[in-house]
Simulated scan of single mutants.
Amino acid sequence: MTIKITKCSREDLQTLQKISIDTFHDTFKDQNTPENMEAYLAKAFHSEQLERELANPSSEIYFVYFNEELAGYLKVNINDAQSEKMGEEFLEIERIYIRSPFQNHGLGKHLLNKAIEIAMDQNKSKLWLGVWEKNRKAIAFYNKMGFIQTGAHSFYMGDEEQTDFIMSKTLV
Rank of each mutant, 00 (worst) to 15 (best):
Q103L: 06
K114G: 04
S59I: 06
L70R: 13
M157V: 10
R136F: 01
K4E: 15
Q149G: 03
F24D: 06
F66N: 14
K124M: 03
W128C: 04
N135L: 07
K126A: 07
G146W: 04
M145N: 14
A71C: 12
Q149M: 08
I98M: 11
S9P: 00
G106V: 08
T2E: 13
Y142C: 02
E51R: 11
R95F: 04
E51L: 11
M1E: 07
E53H: 06
A119M: 06
G108T: 13
N113H: 11
P34W: 07
Q82K: 04
A138W: 01
P101S: 06
E69P: 03
I139P: 01
Q82E: 07
Q14W: 02
E92S: 11
E161P: 03
A55C: 08
M37S: 07
S168Q: 12
M37A: 08
Y62M: 08
M37E: 07
K144Y: 02
E117Q: 14
L91R: 14
I21M: 07
Q31A: 11
L13I: 10
A55L: 09
E38H: 11
L91D: 04
M167L: 12
Y40C: 10
N104K: 15
K134P: 00
W128P: 02
W132D: 07
R52W: 00
K144V: 01
